[in-house]
Amino acid sequence: MTAPLLDITGLKVHLHVGERIVRAVDGVDLQVAHGTCVGVVGESGSGKSTLARAAARLLPNLPATISGTAQFEGRDLLGMNERALRGLRRRHGFSMIFQDPLGYLNPTQRIGAQIGEALSDEDGAKTPRIAALLDEVGLAGARDIVRRYPHELSGGMRQRVMIAIALASAPKLLFADEPTTALDVTVQLQVLQALYRLHRERQMAIVIITHDLAVVAEICDACHVMQSGRVVESGPTASLFANPQHPYTARLLELSRRRAGVRP
């Protein structure tokens, strides 16, 4: 068996908040194989976003103790220097999309420029590649979108632009941090479908961080349930949903079904 694309073992992120220590992530193991889709589910505050940010080395510069290991294709992510990290982010490494695309897009820069600067210079002219990326995320109809600013787009379009930016480096792994939470219900499904299609077409592994079990059920091969910084249950999505072992998982499932109006 080949080594997993992303291999996290015993990862701890302890944030120092004044005198207190917040164990945001407290000993998490997570493996992501090439081309698979893994869900990390949990309530807000369970540490799932911090886990993804720590693995992607995108935690804000706060006082924190990070221990454990995180390897990307066998390379140590946590100890990696900025230069090597930039290399991985720019080409064939990993990228990330976020919950709030309006806040995560530069308000004063045109869409075309924001996508363009994520493309590496080595692969030729940028304009056709920007157009190709926009096609790929389902924004083919909006040709003039490159000249527009984020606030001129709808929420769904912004998230698609975010995805286009993330795809620009042709990543092997995409972290999706609550990618559909801020969107309308109808748009949620479209964005999810787009992500799934890209996952299949590009053989791109995805780690989806979400509190929405329906999202996981829709597209994830495997699922990890997090509570208070720990993974309390994990396994293939189908069996986990059919037969939850941990009471917390069962309760999450119960709540999710009730909200969807489907009585078990």
């Binding site: 992607a56 995108l58 804000p60 990290l85 930039r86 290399g87 991985l88 982010r89 720019r90 490494g93 990228s95 990330m96 976020f98 709030d100 806040g103 995560y104 897009l105 530069n106 308000p107 004063t108 820069q109 924001q114 600067e117 994520a118 975010m162 930016i165 993330a166 620009a168 480096s169």
Partner: peptide
């Protein structure tokens, strides 16, 4: 948030300052 995006793009410190911080 867009500074996080800029970091995720793998931009250098100088490029982030020039393109994303200065104007805003």
């Amino acid at each position: 948030g867009y500074i996080v995006t800029a970091r995720a793009k793998g931009l250098t410190r100088g490029a982030i300052i020039r393109r994303h911080i200065l104007r805003n």
